[in-house]
Simulated assay, not measured.
Amino acid sequence: MVNVVVYSSDYCSYCIRAKQLLDAKGVAFEEIKVDGKPQVRAEMSQKAGRTSVPQIWIGATHVGGCDDLFALERAGKLDALLKA
Rank of each mutant, 00 (worst) to 15 (best):
M1F: 13
V2G: 10
N3G: 12
Y7V: 07
Y7C: 07
S9N: 04
S9G: 12
Y11H: 10
Y11R: 09
C12K: 04
C12I: 02
S13M: 04
S13R: 01
S13I: 02
Y14M: 01
Y14W: 04
I16F: 07
R17A: 10
A18Q: 04
A18N: 03
Q20W: 01
Q20H: 02
D23I: 00
A24D: 09
G26D: 05
V27F: 07
A28N: 14
F29T: 07
E30R: 15
E30N: 14
E30A: 13
E31L: 01
V34G: 06
D35G: 05
G36V: 06
G36P: 03
G36R: 07
K37N: 11
P38E: 09
Q39G: 12
Q39L: 09
R41D: 13
R41Q: 15
A42I: 12
E43H: 15
M44H: 12
M44C: 14
M44I: 09
Q46M: 15
K47H: 15
A48K: 13
G49Y: 13
G49R: 12
G49S: 11
R50S: 14
T51R: 13
S52L: 04
S52W: 02
I56Y: 08
W57Q: 09
W57D: 11
I58D: 03
I58C: 05
I58M: 03
G59D: 11
A60L: 08
A60K: 15
T61I: 04
H62C: 12
V63E: 02
V63L: 01
V63A: 02
G65R: 10
G65A: 05
G65W: 10
G65P: 07
G65M: 03
C66T: 08
L69Y: 04
L69D: 02
F70W: 10
E73Y: 02
E73K: 01
E73L: 00
A75H: 01
A75K: 08
A75S: 05
G76M: 01
K77E: 07
K77Q: 04
K77R: 08
L78T: 00
L78R: 00
L81A: 00
L82C: 02
L82H: 05
K83W: 06
K83H: 13
K83A: 11
A84K: 14
